[in-house]
Design a protein around this nucleic acid. Structure first.
Lengths: 210, 210
DNA sequence: CTTGACTGGTAATGGTCATTACCGTACATG
DNA sequence: CATGTACGGTAATGACCATTACCAGTCAAG
């Protein structure tokens, strides 16, 4: 029915990972059956067991892959030479789009659920994803502070505030399946508003403190 | 072993709900077995089936109970007569403490996971919890705007920004089991910083816009 | 004491699932 | 053409689980 033979294994592996990710993200770890994955990927269960060992190994491969591919930080080059407002806007839009994308929503859901079952994986997800992103933003804010664009403060904490505004109720609603991912216009609106509040919030005061 | 007889049923019902909530929140819906619940609650499976019908009914009862008891909004009286800074501080601390509390973390986890399986329940959770809280804050901001304390803007969206800052990476880390709930001091620090940024962010400008 | 509503304990039923085992086939190289 | 390797399909094995059934004790009213 499907292609009868493929390259040694890399593309089959990818097909398995893609199909498995879909099912895991939809149903959760426990409710996902190997049969359901095979139904989507084609082939036979032996593929999964010879490539990933068992269900847990397959799951781990998915989490690792999606953690760093989808949640990677913005490249330094992307914000090179931009002022703080533009940097935050680019950063915020990118972040919101990533957080709302189906694979990241899927990973996010399953990380929250399986925190007890797979603590190591969840730690890796956080550090490579949200943690790294926030640190990256903190560096940007640190530079801005050094230039005098914003007033002194704990850059790490300020970065968390900004990231929190990006991952607000809109994100929660998407994660809960209560509404679809926002359009590009909605993203621009929400991020614009957040940038505005944040910039004013951290700006150097017009009047010196008493 | 346990008490041999109790009042008609109310306290037994509560005991079942409490034990079931623990297991559901730890293991997730699918992985929770009725036997595991009975092991914690004592008694026999017949109790559960005669009181809640089936596993789904028990789960629904838990979600409903915890959605409105734990995530209820702040009473209007609690912020009566306070200025905006104090109001936001009280509001923010209360919100963060609630969001970090074990039952709400549990409900949050399971809502995220079971969004596909129980859409109605999840909708009710959101509306009674985060949704209502945010609307309540939006009303507060609307009043402040009318008094000229803050500049014009979409109050609903501003409220989302604030709530987002309260539910930032700290919350995510707790939900993911990567760190324990923050101490009261940590809550005060984080909320204080968020209030500061937010207040400056939405303040009426010292210089009129050009 | 008798009866009945309720409860605990335990087993039966029917279903699902992870994991492994088998069987036959297609392909690639010799 | 011969043969080994990897594959698809399907079934076997052993475990777990929701739900129901069955049995026996306990309490309270008559």
């Amino acid at each position: 029915m499907a292609a009868t033979r493929m390259e040694p294994n890399e593309s089959r592996r990818q097909a398995l990972l893609r199909a498995a990710a879909e099912v895991f993200f939809e149903q959760g770890y426990v409710a996902t059956s190997i049969d359901a994955i095979i139904e989507r990927a084609g082939g036979s269960k032996r593929n999964i067991y010879s490539e990933f060992g068992n269900k847990e190994g397959l799951f781990a491969a998915i989490v690792r892959e999606n953690s760093d591919s989808a949640l990677s930080t913005l490249d330094a080059g992307d914000v090179e030479g931009l002022d703080l407002r533009a940097t935050l806007t680019v950063f915020g839009r990118h972040l919101m789009e990533v957080y709302m994308s189906p694979p990241v929503v899927g990973i996010y859901r399953i990380a929250v659920t399986e925190a007890n079952r797979f603590p190591e994986l969840v730690k890796a997800f956080y550090e490579q994803g949200p943690g790294r992103t926030t640190s990256r933003l903190a560096e940007v804010l640190e530079l801005a502070r050094a230039r005098g664009d914003i007033r002194a403060g704990n850059s790490e904490r300020l970065a968390e505030h900004f990231v929190g505004m990006i991952r607000d109720n809109l994100h929660l609603q998407v994660v809960l399946g209560l509404r679809p991912a926002p359009s590009q216009e909605e993203v621009h609106e929400a991020v614009g508003s957040a940038v505005e509040v944040f910039l004013n919030g951290v700006a150097t005061p017009l009047t010196p403190p008493d």
